[in-house]
């Protein structure tokens, strides 16, 4: 495609919906003005005009697929024949699947915990230090980078050269400078998962940091000063005032990172592609979408397993929303 047709496609895509809203609202105004239909229906019709595009997209891309994926998980690889729980039974017996579940659990346990912990500690540090804003920017920066970009950055850190060569990967250079042997980090089973998780922690700490920083500003200054006057140590203030105050925020950050970790795909796909026992559900699912021409049944089972992980969070969100609406 040449550049002019590219630009015109982009513009057409953007203006299509703007024109839709203008046009239909204009038509409605016209119809009401000349009393073609009663004034009573104006608001209902206008709400349909406002809602229709978004609702159609929501239905096509989220609501329908959720139920369709659940349905497909009971069908064969082409989605034609009903086979009951066979795909689920396959999954339970499959080694890759078990390995993925274990790895996913590891990710779920370690990444949200450490990201939240680092975020909280750094937010407290930056709050008290005059160059804290710059530090915050730097630690937050990985949030802007793609997982694949981060993958390249860290693959370079983990790079391995033979023992006689000069190491160009930072980690091995440090290891060698301590007189130890260089390692091919990403190929050591079990441990390599930790090296992959480090990337996610590196990225998500920034998120925790900025949200905690915003929340910290909400702590009343008087409370902190009163505690200091009473002679409480900084550590005591942190545990007895700041942590209880941030309880809700900690929970929120935890859930955000948990949801993200459940779907983790890019990092593993780019770094190891699931080799050396690093596969997780999202990678296995992508794999089964295309392996041997694609198996929609098995792929759906794997997607559904990820969904099961978010159901408690989904229920909790809905519960809180209902409480808020009623107050």
């Amino acid at each position: 495609m040449n550049i002019i047709s590219l630009i015109s496609t982009v513009l057409a895509g953007i203006f299509f919906f703007i024109i839709y809203f203008r046009l239909f609202n204009f038509i409605l105004d016209y119809i009401i003005k000349y009393k073609i239909i009663s004034h009573r229906y104006e608001n209902s019709i206008r709400s349909i005009i406002f809602i229709a595009p978004a609702f159609l997209v929501l239905f096509t891309f989220i609501l329908f697929p959720v139920f369709e994926t659940i349905r497909l998980s009971f069908y064969d690889k082409f989605g034609r024949e009903f086979i009951g729980f066979e795909n689920y039974l396959w999954a339970i017996k499959d080694n890759e699947f078990r390995r993925s579940i274990l790895n996913n659990l590891g990710w779920l346990l370690i990444v949200p915990t450490l990201s939240t912990f680092f975020g909280l500690v750094i937010a407290n540090l930056t709050d008290r230090i005059w160059w804290g804003t710059i530090a915050k920017s730097i630690i937050f920066m990985p949030m802007a980078i793609s997982f694949v970009g981060a993958g390249v950055i860290w693959k370079f850190i983990y790079d391995y050269r033979g023992i006689d060569d000069q190491q160009i990967g930072l980690l091995n250079a440090i290891v060698v400078s301590f007189g130890l042997e260089p390692q091919a980090w990403l190929t050591i089973p079990i441990w390599n998962n930790l090296f992959l998780m480090a990337i996610m922690i590196w990225i998500q700490t920034g998120l925790a940091l900025v949200i905690f920083s915003a929340a910290l500003r909400g702590i009343p200054k008087e409370t902190l000063e009163a505690a200091r006057i009473d002679g409480a140590s900084e550590f005591r203030i942190f545990w007895s005032i700041i942590i209880p105050f941030l309880e809700q925020t900690i929970l929120v950050i935890w859930t955000i990172i948990t949801i993200l970790v459940l779907k983790v795909f890019d990092i593993i796909y780019a770094m190891t592609n699931g080799q050396w026992q690093t596969e997780v559900l999202a990678n296995l699912m992508y794999d089964w979408m295309f392996r041997g021409g694609g198996d929609s049944g098995r792929g759906s089972v794997l997607a559904f397993c990820i969904m099961i992980g978010v159901i408690p969070i989904l229920a909790w969100n809905l519960y809180r929303h209902r409480n808020e609406q009623s107050t």
């Binding site: 609501l63 697929p65 994926t69 497909l72 779907k263 792929g299 759906s300 997607a303 990820i306 969100n317």
Partner: peptide, 15 residues
Amino acid sequence: IASLVVPLQMSLIPI
């Protein structure tokens, strides 16, 4: 609010 947390993977195959 429910869709906020639905993983992308749930949509890939049907779409």
